[in-house]
Write a protein that binds this DNA or RNA. Structure first.
Lengths: 217, 217
DNA sequence: AAAAAAGTTTAAGCAAGCTTAAATTAAAAA
DNA sequence: TTTTTAATTTAAGCTTGCTTAAACTTTTTT
């Protein structure tokens, strides 16, 4: 299993989770390669039993592919916890650093790391960490964009794809687990004004879509 | 800089240190590739300024190549310290695991790791860890094979290339920093019998050549 | 239902890092 | 010094993962 292949499998998993289906062009876009490259790789992954492919229609991970994906994600998220908690690595940089480490650590190493970290259940962005059998808890989260004016919610996850949002939130003193209240909702551009214990900040529609919350805690 | 290139540079450095000169065939042997592959890569590294090459004669790292090598070695050894001290990763496995991590960690990450580890000066096999400027202390070590019967010495380094020696020593309770006495020396096969505080063990010529010691401490 | 557009796959070709085989150079032996 | 041997480099070719361009499906529009 090489880095490139692992990246394909991991991204098929996450696209499937987010969008519900995976196509050549979506995956190509995500991986920043041509559709032809994806098409090519998919037929290889199909031959080696990681992906079930129906040409021209789409594809999905097999059971084997799925557990491969969860194992990579597990490595990624455990490294994130380590980087943030022990090395004080900045929140917004943790993701891209873990992106490299995830491909360079044996299962044995990761088990020891998990033990050292005391079996964390979530990564620094609020994503669940699969155990070595691929099992994980899944919270039912709501995007902040769906919350109405006046409601009080708790931030449980901020997507880590783009560091921009993380930098903005950090700068304004908003963190995971914070409780916030929607003070204002501007229908024109779907932006929000929210208030936490310490601060009051403006949240664009784009940002509100990658912040996930739960209601009554 | 990719993994393969980093491996070439790192190995040129270590062969130079051990043997005093680097040739195509020695490097090929170390990297388990053909001489032709080495020849090819050396001319690339020469073009990009990491290596000074005199065709048919040999080659060596430039200043730029040297500091690249030290940076990779630094990463390798800091990871080794982490793996052993914090994850309780077995002594003899630490090397091969670090071999992968060294290529997947940014300079920034490594600085934070170094800080977390409290700026260790030696790795778990006794090799010095370069600081971020490439500076390191160098002990004058003597191979155990050069020590005469009756002498008492302290183990300061055990080469980590082959895990076999490390496993043997660990099994017999010999560790870095142990003080040992040469009880017997068999001239026939240059083997030794040595005694530490806790144990008495047989050391073959081969093993005695990769154990390094200092005399009076 | 036919035409146009969009998406996917196949084909041809490139770069990197490797291989084996042939050619070249240097070193050792005669 | 010439010959033989050993080491190195060059050449030709393979594989992997990519590219662009062409061919082919599927979907959407009219």
């Amino acid at each position: 299993m090489n880095i490139s292949t692992e990246d394909y499998i991991k991204n098929i998993y996450s696209i499937d989770l987010a969008v519900g289906k995976v196509t050549t062009s979506i995956l190509a876009e995500k991986l920043k390669v041509s559709s032809a490259a994806v098409s090519d790789m998919i037929s290889k992954l199909s031959k080696s039993g990681y992906v079930k492919n129906i040409p021209y229609k789409g594809f999905e991970l097999t059971k084997k592919g799925n557990s491969m994906a969860l194992n990579i994600i597990r490595k990624h998220r455990l490294w994130e916890v380590f980087l943030l908690q022990y090395l004080n690595y900045p929140w917004e940089k943790v993701h891209s650093e873990a992106e490299k480490l995830e491909h360079s650590s044996s299962d044995e190493l990761i088990e020891k790391l998990e033990q050292f970290l005391n079996f964390p259940k979530y990564d620094p962005h609020g994503d669940p960490i699969p155990d070595k059998n691929g099992k994980f808890r899944n919270l039912a989260l709501i995007p902040l964009s769906d919350i109405k004016k006046g409601e009080i919610v708790q931030i449980k996850k901020v997507s880590d794809e783009d560091p921009g949002g993380l930098i903005y939130l950090t700068k304004h003193g908003i963190r995971l687990e914070d409780k916030i209240k929607i003070k204002e909702r501007t229908e024109f551009d779907s932006s929000l004004e929210v208030e936490s214990k310490h601060s009051k900040i403006f949240i664009s529609e784009k940002l509100s879509k990658i912040i996930f919350v739960i209601k009554n805690t």
